[in-house]
């Protein structure tokens, strides 16, 4: 893509992608840059509150989200890839638009306004309009990779957001456009357990094992996850000795559209995906 057509985006990584899932972050940036976006990290962004803030303190949860919204420069869309961060940002933006009191609180709290026209884009929104078949002609693709898509709770949302676009089937569509083979299964929308992974590892472990067993039974070589938290819970909580690897969606995309080389991302996985990728001839 020519330099002049490049589109600048404000980028909100969120805590998981900035720390535990750096491989998710790096591959996402690499892929987005490759398809023509300039990723500009939001200065001094803060945690969205994760599952904890809204659980115990509604005002705190809202404040954490509005601070981030006030930090996004005017006139540039804000991209996030973490489903939970996005949900918090969108919820706060909706509340600001509906409730003048919330707007007053935000301005008094942070001393800065929120751009009323700020466009919030999830990574999936970006992909929904991308031409992967065209891209596939000029890139190595993912031929030989059998996968099951794992959305976790990403496709579920509160009733107030039920009219917004839903990206059911997007991972399958995009990756099959790039040559990979999706397998059918019934566990793609099971919640990963989020914080119960810490507090009730027994409950989450049993569930995660069922997810892996079903993925393998469906004939997949790997699971492809949409969320860094899901990726961690799947990898960390499984008690199975032999299990297939878990790729971040962004890793699969960056791999498909870049050079087929071993990146330092893969060494950060608890289950090393490199033997699988080598046998599918996706890396050297």
């Amino acid at each position: 893509m020519s330099r002049s057509k490049r589109i600048p985006l404000s980028y909100f990584p969120g805590c998981s992608m900035a720390t535990t899932a750096k491989e998710n972050n790096r591959s996402l940036i690499e892929f987005c840059e490759r398809i023509g976006y300039d990723m500009i990290e939001v200065q001094d962004w803060n945690c969205c509150g994760s599952s904890s803030a809204h659980s115990v303190d509604a005002e705190l949860a809202e404040d954490l989200a509005t601070r981030n919204l006030t930090l996004a420069p005017e006139g540039r869309p804000l991209l996030a890839a973490c489903p939970n961060c996005m949900l918090r940002l969108r919820g706060a933006q909706r509340h600001l638009a509906e409730d003048p009191e919330a707007q007053k609180r935000c301005e008094a709290r942070w001393g800065r306004p929120v751009d009323p026209d700020l466009k919030l884009i999830h990574f999936f929104d970006l992909l929904a309009g991308a031409d992967m078949k065209g891209l596939n002609k000029t890139s190595p693709g993912l031929k030989g990779m059998k996968f099951v898509p794992y959305y976790g709770c990403m496709l579920a949302r509160p009733p107030a957001m039920r009219h917004e676009p839903n990206h059911h089937g997007l991972i399958e569509k995009i990756l099959s456009d790039l040559g990979a083979e999706p397998r059918r299964w019934g566990y793609g929308a099971r919640c990963c357990g989020t914080f119960l992974s810490v507090v009730r590892p027994d409950v989450v472990g049993a569930m995660v094992d069922a997810i892996f067993r079903n993925a393998a039974a469906a004939g997949a070589d790997c699971l492809v996850t949409a969320c860094a938290m899901c990726h961690m819970n799947l990898e960390v909580r499984s008690t199975l000795q032999n299990r297939i690897s878990v790729l971040h969606f962004s890793e699969a995309l960056a791999l498909a559209t870049g050079k087929g080389e071993d990146r330092d991302w893969f060494s950060r996985h608890l289950v090393d995906p490199r033997p699988m990728l080598r046998s599918a001839r996706l890396i050297a």
Binding site: S55, A156, C191
Partner: peptide, 26 residues
């Protein structure tokens, strides 16, 4: 309840269960 909203998409009456749980915890 982790607030995954799985119940909300199944609910025929669009009850926001996660919001109810948040309120109850608080």
């Amino acid at each position: 309840c982790v607030g995954c909203h799985t119940c909300s998409i199944a609910c025929p009456m669009a009850v926001d269960m996660a919001a109810v749980m948040d309120a109850l915890r608080q």
